[in-house]
Design a protein around this nucleic acid. Structure first.
Lengths: 339, 339
DNA sequence: CGTTCGTACTATAACGTTTTAGCGGTATCC
DNA sequence: GGATACCGCTAAAACGTTATAGTACGAACG
């Protein structure tokens, strides 16, 4: 069950494969193929439902019309929704998406890059892990367009699309202060990557601006690779250890989810016993009672920017880096209003 | 920045590309290449970090080591989690995944099949839409292994991995009856595909078995393409129109989520005012207060089965169809206990 | 009338791999 | 001593494209 090839069309039209290729690639004018022949070829191609073999084309041209999408965890709501947007947008340009999850593990990420590289993807959208800068620079050096997302390497020039993490965290913390909460903790990750640093900094600066002195005991950093129980145990331990604590800011959506679960299992009432704000929106936050205040990322915008930058680079590479920082929305809900 | 090719290795080793290919494909013994040469080639390949060009290989062999994953909506928790499992499992066999979302739209699904076909994926995992049987049969006819998931076409032989929808719905409904609820509604989709039919049948039969006469006014079918507000409006309208209603079974996870939102915005108390059970588990159901009883799908098992069947078919196609029906777990939570 | 030019195509090579057929040489057989 | 078999390897073709160089033909030019 072989597919239709350019040769089949050539045979039927009584011309050479070269001519068929020219016509089908819109080079009829340029290559001075007569309208007559041109139309005949078009018609036959249509009738036979000819679809170019992307492998052969890729082998010859070096372009596969495929982009690699590397995320932290495709099962996570944030990345899955983004994957959908990327799929949609890429499709508009005729590109398909190969995806992979790093689990925030640098070795896994390197493996993914390797595989995608020898699968000849044309460009990459990457949520980088720690220490992935060397590999990324190497790919860039090889002329492969890359757009980073969610985070980037401050010392390394690159295209990226991120959100204003600092301001998001600042606004969230400020909001808690304005609502009358004063002993405000943050639960974040052990990651020292820029996005988490910025969030922590935003939290710290907002407290300082409110005249609240920093208290290291109110900052809890958790590793990525705990399981559900591990997260819950750690969070509960942390929350109960901090006397007088009256609000907590969770720095990622999954921390927020575990956080809610933990607080509930402690029997505390969200809002009055403890104010809660989380980074990232999620159906859960909207539906929880009380609903959870959050800093929402503009997912569609992020995805659109990622793909449009990548496509621009694929078509006409430039030397200047496109760096987009999108604003965040603070969505205020009851979880932070009942002090 | 060309990659290392088999020719580079051949040159360095002073042998022909053929020999290199034999050795690197493990055919050294079979093709009687001497250990000496064999080892030399291995060493050079290792040193140069040779990675075969998958395009060239694919062009020659017709195998791309890529599988196409067609789901309803990759942004949906159920499908995203599944995509992760499929990614993991496929990786074990050296396969990568190209994905696409149908939005339950047959035309989109056809488009996806088309694209994946001329991208030469080796096999498919498909959540079929209505009327996709013709296209699937055609692909099967072309010798492409396909495993269906979530649903299948009863009149068409195919491999599939599904869950026991009938029994799941039956058990869920029976549970509501046992808890003392008696006027039990179901909110399902307009889809007349087998998985939804089975769920509806399970619901009906469980009621019948309990001596409760069917009441068409308690069955609500909603189309897939509403927006959030549309779903909420419809559900609210339905729930308030049914006098005496004391429990409701939502037949998919997204319906369950909208359902909770709707019930809450009506000001009803889940559990006492109205018992709730949903199909599919979700973080939301676990974290909601009260937590929502649900019929959970064994995601990892589904994914593992899908990939393992597909791989078996890729390696040694058989004529008999592998059809797996996995059992479901009823996870009982407070939303269905307070009558 | 020989040269140049333009038109409308085509032959051929190349991309990197795998596969088939085969080659030159030595050893074995009857 | 001629056929046969094995050994260790290689030449060449093929997969389906695209890009480069070129060709055959007629017209225009000087």
């Amino acid at each position: 069950m072989k597919g239709i090839s350019i040769k089949d069309i050539a045979k039927q039209a009584g011309v050479s494969p070269t001519t068929v290729s020219f016509v089908l690639n819109g080079k009829a004018k340029e290559k001075r193929i007569s309208d007559q022949v041109s139309k005949k070829i078009q018609k036959i191609a249509g009738k036979l439902k000819y679809k170019p073999n992307q492998l052969a084309r890729g082998l010859r041209t070096g372009k596969t019309k495929t982009i690699g999408l590397i995320v932290e965890d495709i099962a996570n709501n944030f990345f899955a929704t983004l994957a959908k947007v990327v799929e949609d947008e890429a499709d508009k340009y005729g590109y398909k998406v190969l995806y992979g999850s790093t689990e925030d593990n640098t070795e896994k990420a390197k493996g993914l890059l390797e595989v995608l590289k020898y699968r000849q993807v044309d460009g990459y959208i990457i949520t980088p892990t720690k220490n992935l800068d060397k590999e990324i620079e190497q790919l860039q050096g090889a002329g492969k367009p890359i757009v980073l997302m969610d985070r980037y390497f401050p010392q390394m020039p690159s295209h990226y699309v991120v959100v204003d993490n600092y301001k998001g965290a600042y606004t969230a913390t400020e909001h808690l202060v304005n609502q009358g909460y004063s002993k405000i903790a943050i639960v974040t990750t052990t990651s020292d990557q820029v996005q988490m640093k910025d969030r922590l900094q935003g939290y710290n600066d907002a407290l300082k601006a409110a005249g609240i002195t920093a208290n290291k005991a109110l900052v809890k950093k958790l590793p990525f690779d705990l399981d559900r129980e591990g997260f819950n145990d750690e969070i509960k331990k942390f929350l109960t250890a901090s006397k007088g604590l009256d609000a907590v800011f969770f720095a990622t959506n999954y921390l927020g989810i575990y956080g809610i679960e933990s607080i509930r299992s402690l029997g505390w009432t969200i809002g009055s016993d403890i104010g809660v704000v989380s980074f990232d929106d999620h159906d859960i936050f909207r539906l929880h009672s009380p609903a959870i205040t959050c800093v929402a990322q503009p997912l569609r915008q992020i995805g659109e920017n990622l793909v449009s930058i990548l496509m621009k680079e694929l078509n006409q590479p430039t030397t200047d880096m496109q760096q987009v920082v999108l604003p965040l929305d603070l969505i205020i809900r009851p979880s932070s209003l009942h002090k």
